[in-house]
Amino acid sequence: MLRFIYGEDLSEFPKLRDTMFRDRARQFSERLGWEVTVDAAGEERDQYDAMNPLYVIWQKACGSHGGSMRFLPTTAPCMVNDHFTHLTDGVTISHPLIWECTRFCLAPDAEPRVAAALMLGGAELGQGFHLTDAVGVFDARMVRIYGRLGWAPTVLGTSGEGRDAISVGLWEMSEATRQRMARKAGLSPTLSRHWFDRAFGTATSLPQAVSA
């Protein structure tokens, strides 16, 4: 299932949290060889994890991490503007309706639909919070995955060659995309909306509205 969890609430999900940061170490440090910080427990974290980001996480039936990504508003310090403006023609992407998405990560044994499910989670945020776009940092390997899912980013810029390439891209939000990602993930868009509502609250009548 999809979980939407702020950093400050991760402590309520210790297994999910620990397996997520461990899977991130495997992906970004071991497999991709990025210069990221891995602690003694084998968990990868950076300064943005300390900024109470919003994580979109695929939770496996056993309760552990199947895949995840991390959102931050672009009006506050975020990775794209702090570290990647050399890929955006020097443009800082800062807008109330654009959130940053980074650390797209899949568990080593993730079933194929997890990538689509995470993208669906991103689309839920887009529709639920009226975003126009997401801006993200991703490695070369992901380009094909995003393309196959039918939600390819508009690439703003790329550094490095071949497998080592890192890009910054924009994903445009729309309801049509949300529907398409649900189909790709083999999930009902009603179910993913339910997961969204469970995280952010269901719109119910306020008590006083009833009595009024």
């Binding site: 959130w99 919070f129 009226h130 306020l206």
Partner: peptide, 17 residues
């Protein structure tokens, strides 16, 4: 309680009253 140090907009009907 629902908004402090977060960043998603909130319709009050989604909060726990």
């Amino acid at each position: 309680m629902g908004c402090f140090q977060r960043f998603h907009p909130v319709d009050w009907r989604r909060l726990d009253w």
